[in-house]
Each structure stands twice: as structure tokens, then as C-alpha cells.
């Protein structure tokens, strides 16, 4: 590999025209001078699936959590740079408001164990104390479960606890729960790493369908998954955004040798 490409940094990061979310020179630290991600700049395109890849500890989850400010759960976090959502600085929005616009799905399915399937879907309304009419609730539950393809499987068991479902169904329930509030962006943190291949395939199909209405950002450990479903891919390494481009291009002709090494399985 020739090093001529390596020197042109801009070449390795794709420029997105009018992004829905813009990450501008963001660095995040969990305390002290050590930064988990450094100077990350990237635009996220609307209605696309953007995958964030990289070896363990590269900062991909930190970047994802910085987008809906979930990283602030750790008390000593601080950041430099910023993120804008539709032009608005997210660090000036109340995190509670922000998280209603940017939903999140986690590594392990985590439906609320005390709630039924029905209540899990409308949990965002219920827990926030938003009163809905019975018909409105029914409508949200049906729409959200339809969206994640869980309606036919659960319509007769809506009042059973969510934890009775299988792992894959639980994860789709969690996606439905995130969709119920109609967020603009959905963040997924390795959503299939605890699931079997069949359940994984279902979630992947689902995400591809969902991008019509939502913008999806997906952290994944699984290169195959990124290649299969994402439009854009980011490759992160030790806190740095090494390369960001169209997935097909990046997987066939990576511009940075570290990306190439990772994609060909030399590390990670």
C-alpha cells in the first residue's frame, strides 16, 4: 500500500451534504486528561444506516452514547467540541428532551421486567406521566409493534410480561419501545451481539426497513453486519475516527492501512 493516500486526511472522511446530525471535533473523557475519543468530526446522513466499527476499546460506544448524552451517567465525564442535531447544539438541549428525539437500543435486550408487552411499548409515555386515551395507546402499541414485525406474534399476549418473549423478540420489543416516541434518530449499541443468527437476521432486515422513516446509527463488532446493512461506515481505532465512507467503497478499497488491516482480520 502506498502512503500517498495516507497523507491526505480529508480523503478518508466522507463529507455529508446537509447532515441531520453533525459531530464537530468531539473529544470525550471519562475523567482526567485521558480522552476515550479524540477530535471526531463526522456528519450523519438522514434516513441511512451508519455503522460504527472498530476493535474493543476504540471508543465506538462512547461516541454513540455522546450522541444522546448517555455518557453523562458517569459523573466525571467532560467533552470538547460539539454535536448538533438539525443545527441545534445538543449540549444546550435538556438531556431528557434530547433522548426523546434520539432513541437508543442496547446490547442486551432490556424490557422492563415489571411491565407487560403493551406497557413496555408505551413505557416512554407511561414513565413520563403523559396521559393518553385508551385508543391512542392502542394505536401506538399496534403501530410500533407492526413496525418491528412483532405484532402478529404478540397481539394475543399483549398483557403478558415482556420478559416471557425470546431474546430476539425482546430486542425487537426494545426497538418498538424506542420507536413509540417517534424519535428522529435511533442509536443501537451492538443490538445483536447477544442473539442467535436467526434472530440477528430478523433484526438486520428490520433495520433496513426502518431507515425509510428513521436515521439509524449502529455500533457493531460484526464486520459482516456492517457490510450487509449499512450505507456508511466509520472505522475507529484508539479513540480516533480513522476512516468514514460509503460502506461498499470502504470494504473494497479502504484508504487507510489500519482500516484494511482490521477489515482483513489482522487485528480486532
Amino acid at each position: 500500500m502506498e502512503s500517498t493516500v495516507l497523507n491526505k486526511t480529508d480523503d478518508r472522511i466522507i463529507q455529508i451534504e446537509s447532515p441531520i446530525l453533525n459531530i464537530d471535533n468531539l473529544s470525550v473523557s471519562y475523567g482526567g486528561d485521558k480522552y476515550s475519543i479524540m477530535n471526531v468530526s463526522a456528519g450523519i446522513q438522514k434516513n441511512k444506516i451508519t455503522a460504527i466499527m472498530g476493535p474493543s476499546g476504540c471508543g465506538k460506544s462512547t461516541l454513540l452514547r455522546a450522541i444522546n448524552r448517555m455518557h453523562e451517567l458517569y459523573p466525571e465525564t467532560h467533552h470538547k467540541g460539539g454535536i448538533t442535531l438539525g443545527g441545534e447544539d445538543i449540549y444546550k438541549i435538556n438531556p431528557i428532551e434530547l433522548r426523546r428525539k434520539i432513541g437508543m437500543v442496547f446490547q442486551r435486550p432490556n424490557p422492563f421486567p415489571t411491565m407487560s408487552i403493551y406497557d413496555n411499548v408505551i413505557a416512554a409515555y407511561k414513565l413520563n406521566g403523559i396521559k393518553l386515551k385508551r385508543s391512542e395507546k392502542d394505536e401506538i402499541v399496534e403501530r410500533s409493534l407492526q413496525e418491528v414485525g412483532l405484532w402478529d406474534e404478540t397481539k394475543d399476549a399483549l398483557h403478558k410480561r415482556g420478559t416471557f418473549l425470546s431474546g430476539g423478540q425482546q430486542q425487537r420489543l426494545c426497538i418498538a419501545r424506542a420507536l413509540a416516541y417517534k424519535p428522529e434518530i435511533i442509536l443501537l449499541d451492538e443490538p445483536t451481539s447477544a442473539l442467535d443468527p436467526i434472530a440477528t437476521a430478523k433484526i438486520e432486515d428490520l433495520l433496513v426497513k426502518l431507515k425509510k422513516n428513521y436515521t439509524i446509527i449502529l455500533v457493531t463488532h460484526n464486520m459482516g453486519q456492517a457490510a450487509r446493512i449499512s450505507d456508511h461506515s466509520m472505522f475507529m481505532y484508539i479513540g480516533e475516527l480513522v476512516e468514514y465512507g460509503k460502506t461498499k467503497k470502504m470494504f473494497t478499497t479502504p484508504k487507510d492501512e489500519r482500516t484494511e488491516a482490521y477489515l482483513t482480520g489482522k487485528f480486532g
Binding site: R99, P113, A124, R177, Y181
Partner: peptide, 14 residues
């Protein structure tokens, strides 16, 4: 599990 707390907070629950 802390994931339950995260689930609620990520839904914008105070």
C-alpha cells in the same frame, strides 16, 4: 442490572 436504568433514561425519563 444497570441496563434497566439506562433503558429508562434513554427514553427521556427523568
Amino acid at each position: 442490572p444497570s441496563t434497566l436504568k439506562e433503558a429508562a433514561l434513554s427514553l427521556g425519563v427523568p
